[in-house]
Write a protein that binds this DNA or RNA. Structure first.
Lengths: 249, 249
DNA sequence: GTCCCCCGGTGTTCTAGAACACCAGGGGAA
DNA sequence: TTCCCCTGGTGTTCTAGAACACCGGGGGAC
């Protein structure tokens, strides 16, 4: 009954508690703005120490699911909202504009079943087959972005025959397949890196990062590629010179 | 000698330790890639418990100053790199493009001395006087962005005479002062929110967010405004439709 | 009536110690 | 020689308890 609660399973106790609370919030048992039980009571009800419970809350706070206020309590946070404001262009990939030493390493290319998000983006079923190309871009030797590209099976079959380690993906599409990207929709958010992404990028798990999700379409309007890119926030900034004719602020 | 080490001053012990380590890294005593002493040794040398030391490391990790690797050690992280890739336009402010109910609340306008970053951006000395205008933008009642605008004293004197609660800052500049923004330089990064920013935005401290820093110049090339904007990453996403003529990725 | 202080409740910081979990490399077995 | 295990070093998770620190509101002082 002492020490090391993680003994039962494999995942740490505090992560399990976080997951339990996450579910309560997602399922609606805890509505936005509602106040949670106080930490000591929660700790007791989960059968852990205050310190352990706080680690769970820490996780949830980083995910913006809760908000802790000293002297007041712990509250369920408000839900997220999307916006559509920026002119964003070529965020994913293509870091080479500045004459830095950019290297692209092919981590792998394999076929797999798409998860829900990828399937939706490419207009496929969950049982479909997609080619997953994973690349790591480094600048001056520092890992800079982790890019996973998903291509529908029909296109993937042709793509894998090319030497992806040497030829950029967009050139393979253009020269080998005659596919030209005409339109794309990109979503950029600020997130935390997962374990795997963090490992590949050589930075700690949970680090804040830009996450870009982009669907590219050919001239006929058919989805060609779904790109999913992570760029650690500490080693990356977007800077841009702007020229106006109109207003500002 | 027991409990509550924070008794000495006012700031928590672990924050002091973090600051000490931060200095060692900044001053170069610890070079990028170097491995720190192991946690137990560090704890002893700072005269605190392992748990307390770990809290300090947690802070540094969030700032990307160090990187912890299970089984290996704690390392000084690589320095950050800037890039210049995006076409970013009107990130700061101006959330109104979508017909949502946007409200701007004036939190305050006061004169103060600029910190180093603001002074540099506006080409002023640290002893100069700047007008700080703080505004909170909400969409559908949800706080969306916290914007601090810094204006050089000479401009600020005229600006404060206008009713900033009613008139957008850029209109004050344009109509009242005849100042038109011709050019700007913007930097967007993914960061964690500080206590104050988090409080204003109604989200937990440490939350990941977009941070935009923008310097705007008039036609003569003189800096007019330095805008500093925070937008929580959980309730905000950048989505954009793109149209290409050239290549992709 | 108005102001201030104090109090209960809640989150925060810290201790001292124990038991894992993960990784690299060396030494022994095959 | 090659492979595997095992060991030492390092970060991680957890306990049980104690003392702050912060906030809002109620009650007393004026």
């Amino acid at each position: 009954m002492n020490s090391m609660g993680g003994a039962n399973g494999r995942i740490p106790r505090y992560q399990g508690i976080a997951e339990a609370l996450r579910t309560r919030i997602r399922e609606g048992a805890l509505r936005p703005g509602a106040r949670l039980d106080n930490q000591r009571r929660l700790a007791t009800s989960f059968g852990v120490t205050l310190m352990t419970l706080r680690q769970a809350l820490e996780l949830l706070e980083r995910e913006h699911l809760i908000s802790r206020r000293h002297g007041l309590g712990t509250f369920v946070a408000a839900p997220s909202i999307d916006y559509d404001i920026l002119q964003l262009r070529r965020f994913a990939g293509d870091l080479s504009a500045k004459g830095e030493r950019v290297a692209t390493r092919l981590l792998g290319a394999r076929f797999a079943s798409p998860d829900r998000r990828v399937a939706d983006a490419l207009g496929l079923g969950l049982g479909a087959r997609v080619l997953v190309v994973e690349r790591l871009r480094s600048v001056d030797g520092h890992p800079m972005s982790l890019q996973r590209s998903f291509l529908p099976g029909r296109i993937g079959d042709d793509v894998v025959r090319a030497d992806l380690a040497l030829t950029p993906l967009h050139l393979v599409l253009e020269h080998e397949l005659g596919v030209v990207i005409a339109r794309a929709r990109e979503t950029v958010s600020a997130v935390r890196l997962g374990r795997r992404e963090a490992r590949e990028l050589g930075c700690p798990a949970g680090a804040p990062a830009f996450e870009s999700e982009r669907v590219s379409y050919d001239a006929a309007g058919a989805p060609v590629v779904f790109d999913h890119v992570f760029i650690p926030g500490d080693r990356f900034r977007i800077t841009r010179e702007l020229h106006y004719e109109g207003a500002t602020s």
